[in-house]
Design a protein around this nucleic acid. Structure first.
Length: 411
RNA sequence: GCGAUCGUAGCUCAGUUGGUUAGAGCGCCGGUUUGUGGUACCGGAGGUCGGGGGUUCAAGACCCCUCGAUCGCCCCA
């Protein structure tokens, strides 16, 4: 290992081979799904003014200061590499007059950046697919989004062992009432909670509900539940989502401890969770964020969306092989390299996956062709001063044989 | 920010309670086989064992520091 070669940044990765194929499969399947559901593509900048994300995430949390990749540009303006898609999409929606398209069904995908300690399924530069419906207040929007997510996981072949966990956070009033009831409840047993949760009580009490510490867990079971604080409208909304999921045949599990830390989340919250990815079990997550547009200075705009980590999905997808080589064309004699190149080109123009073996020792070219497991090997050689052509079929392929036959007769 | 585990050829890994010239497979390079077969056989190159310090007659192995990776905690927009 040359020790003066620059190394990759911690938490970044070079994706190659079977992993890269799995990654591409996830993106291709997602593209297929979004066309099926008629979501439109959008591409957003990878960086924005820091305030776009700071306002979306809440300037008080230390997420902003500690976990974002922020820097000053030459004009002294603070910019940040996007840590999520939603804030940038919301900004684009407001600044480009996309209100005229409401309700707008949008997807995007690409890299995101968070300054975190890498671990299984968590990287500093990672990639997500993302789907949003903006300007739709109806529960049908939540259902459509969930149905698309559910079908995507099935098409990817990863639905086994993945369950959809569903919850409601209610409207703004329900949410606030629940929150203060939780604070009151946990304050009474504060001394018996874990150190982490004692701190959560001040900063983010909802998070105590999904604490892993056994000292917290025994109190969580009897904690106040959102259902007791839901307004009539909030109950109706959640009921409509559940009814829609049943109608669409989407299976789910109620998880009353599933929460979102930020205030602008309302009503539906959901996560598709697996136990096959270690501590990072959430494969796809999202919810309704009716309050976000206003915190970015826009008009009240209902919206719902989800995002999923491409790397995590790719891990579940497992090994994906590269496209099969249909024909390997071998120039076993230097003088036949030109013809071999021409034949490869004929194959490729006809849509046949072909590769040329015409470098290195002529004696070893046939062997090297065999090693890449082609469906057929075509050999062009000169034996005793005479041209010879041969085709060896490992797996039958009529097009390969026909093109070879035509090529030989025209020599 | 905290903790645990791990760093040996390009890659995947062996390497005994510390013992003399550090190994294998794959890959790479060279050679042999004039063959409708040959993904074979033979050979070669490639490593100051992550880096630095220490213990010892002797360290890839033991101790300390450091860097990196992995997994977990925190956090999770």
């Amino acid at each position: 290992m040359a020790n003066n070669t620059p190394h990759a940044i911690r938490g970044t990765q070079d994706i190659f081979g079977a992993d890269a194929e799995a990654f591409a499969f996830v993106v291709e399947t997602f593209e297929h799904m979004r066309k099926l559901y008629r979501f439109r593509r959008a591409e957003m900048p990878v960086f924005e003014k820091t305030e776009v994300f700071a306002r979306s995430i809440g300037e008080t949390t230390d997420v902003v200061s500690k976990e974002m990749y922020s820097f000053e540009d030459r004009g002294g303006e603070s910019l940040t590499l996007r840590p999520e898609f939603t804030a940038g999409i919301a900004r684009a929606y407001l600044t480009n007059g996309w209100q005229q398209h409401a309700p707008l069904k949008l997807v995007t995908h690409g890299p995101l950046f968070r300054y975190e300690r890498p671990q299984k399924g968590r990287y500093r530069q990672f990639h997500q697919i993302d789907a949003e419906i903006i300007g739709a207040a109806e529960p049908q929007a939540d259902v459509e989004l969930l149905a698309m997510a559910d079908q995507l996981l099935k098409e990817l072949g990863v639905a086994d062992g993945v369950t959809l966990q569903l919850n409601t956070l209610g409207d703004a009033d329900s949410r606030e009432a629940w929150r203060s009831a939780l604070v009151g409840y946990f304050r009474d047993v504060q001394g018996e909670l874990s150190e982490d949760s004692q701190e959560r009580l001040e900063k983010n009490p909802l998070r105590i509900l999904d604490s892993k510490d056994p000292r917290d867990r025994k109190f969580v079971a009897d904690a106040p539940q959102i259902d007791d604080f839901l307004s009539g409208e909030a109950q109706d909304f959640f009921g409509a989502v559940i009814g829609g999921l049943d109608a669409a045949g989407v299976a789910y599990e109620r998880n009353k401890a599933l929460v979102r830390g930020l205030d602008y989340y309302r009503h539906t919250a959901f996560e598709f969770v697996t136990d096959r990815l270690g501590a990072q079990g959430t494969v796809l997550g999202g919810g309704r964020y009716d309050g976000l547009m206003e915190s970015l200075g826009g008009p009240a705009t209902p919206a719902v969306g989800w995002a999923a980590g491409i790397e995590r999905l790719a891990m579940l997808v497992g090994e994906r092989s590269e496209a099969e080589l249909e024909v390997a064309v071998v120039a076993e004699n230097t003088e036949r390299e030109g013809e071999a190149a021409r034949l490869v080109s004929i194959y490729r123009n006809a849509g046949v996956v072909a590769e040329l073996f015409a470098t290195g020792s002529p004696r070893k070219r046939f062997d090297r062709a065999m090693k890449v497991n082609p469906a057929a090997v075509v050999s062009l050689d000169i034996r005793d001063g005479e041209k010879r052509e041969a085709i060896k079929h490992i797996r039958e392929n009529a097009r390969v044989a026909d093109i070879f036959a035509a090529f030989v007769t025209h020599e």
